[in-house]
Nucleic acid binder design. Structure first.
Lengths: 131, 131, 131, 131
DNA sequence: GTGGTCTAGACCACA
DNA sequence: GTGGTCTAGACCACT
């Protein structure tokens, strides 16, 4: 009945929903003041129990990212400082997970930085070639 | 019937199984010459169809990472050069995904490298404090 | 329900399908860049399961002989060097099977070559007579 | 019910059964004077209709290869000249099919002989290495 | 329409 | 036991 195949079991689903929303916010797919889809709609879209969505929205509100307005729905905050914090939090998680993964692969700090630099340089060259 | 909650739907399951094995190989949880769990066992453990596991093992063999021996089982190759390649492949994917993610968050190349460096320094300090 | 009388059980069907296509390619019944019949069509024609055809096409792609284009179909490669290799592979198999068969019949190397030469000479004479 | 998967549809089954017996005769798996398995046994073994086997045995008798003895069964002839003829017939078919196949692959008479010679030389070297 | 993935379950070959 | 092949049929992504 319920797939949830877009989620993994390494983290609670409500955290994964929060993360999805945070990333949409950072990438400006969601903008300050914008209304989030209804709990029911999201639950249906993500094939998840509405209670799970409610919990995600509540946590987002607790973190100051969303605001519930009775009878209106849930909205992204207008407070851009908060959004900036989200950006830092998400990026911190990205960095953290990345460095952990590289360490597990046996790479030293110096290796990691060198590989990132090399990768970015290659990407830049590719873009220039395309120009 | 079938959960598969450890998988997401962004990539084929057989690729995710391959990736899992590659990471176990890099972290030396799996060692050269070691026997992999049987197709049926893996299928049961991962709650996945045996055919899907067979495909993963077949692809691993094609990449030179595993060797199948009829009636004997499937084994990690003894060839350490291949394992080194796996390490490079996996780390390249980690770097690539990381940089893409950071770019989506709006970070420049310089930002990314600075954040990685800062993160590594902090980790190092933490470790020193623990000592 | 299913005949498959055009196949024997000494080799997997997917290999026999591959071989059929390779021979058609060599005899120029199939030409570089040409579209192969769809998986479903071939499966129906050969009275075989689509998965078996998919496997054949996948292997042909892996050998560089075919190229799959999502939603478009499967095509013979334009690369003529690859086709030349196919020609060599198929002819090598023909020679190998032939010599094995003759050995089983108790013919020596010298016998085999003599018989081939004699056969070719006779054929040539036949053709000349027909002219 | 009936597989017959060891046969293909390019030639009548009774001819294929005859060919199988001829090859066994040449390779001395069957010897002059030896009794062939009963029609019923062969039909069961090959998963073929008994009438098909009867036809094969009748044709073998017509060619002088087998002899039916009422109430006794079917036997390979004692006449070694006949066996020699079988050897020539089978080898002729092998040569003929081989040369046709090579021609379809686009090889000239000279190519064919050269490839056979090369293949035999390589095989000989392999054997010598093993010694 | 194309090919891609997966499941369920069958039967086979090898050891 | 092991892996190998095949079928029947489902659902998905791309064009």
């Amino acid at each position: 009945m319920n797939d949830m195949t877009q989620f993994n079991d390494t983290a609670p689903i409500y955290l994964q929903i929060m993360d999805t929303i945070k990333r949409r916010l950072i990438s400006e797919e969601l903008k300050p003041g914008q209304q989030l889809p209804s709990v029911r709609q999201t639950a249906e879209d993500m094939r998840v129990n509405p209670n799970t969505v409610i919990r995600s929205y509540a946590e987002l509100e607790r973190e100051g990212i969303a605001e519930k307005r009775r009878g209106m729905g849930t909205f992204i905050t207008e407070n851009k400082a908060v959004i900036e914090n989200v950006r830092n939090e998400v990026s911190h998680n990205l960095v953290s997970d990345f460095v952990s993964g590289m360490n597990e692969c046996g790479f030293s700090a110096a290796d990691i930085i060198a590989l990132v630099q090399k990768h970015i340089e290659n990407r830049t060259e590719c873009k220039q070639e395309n120009v």
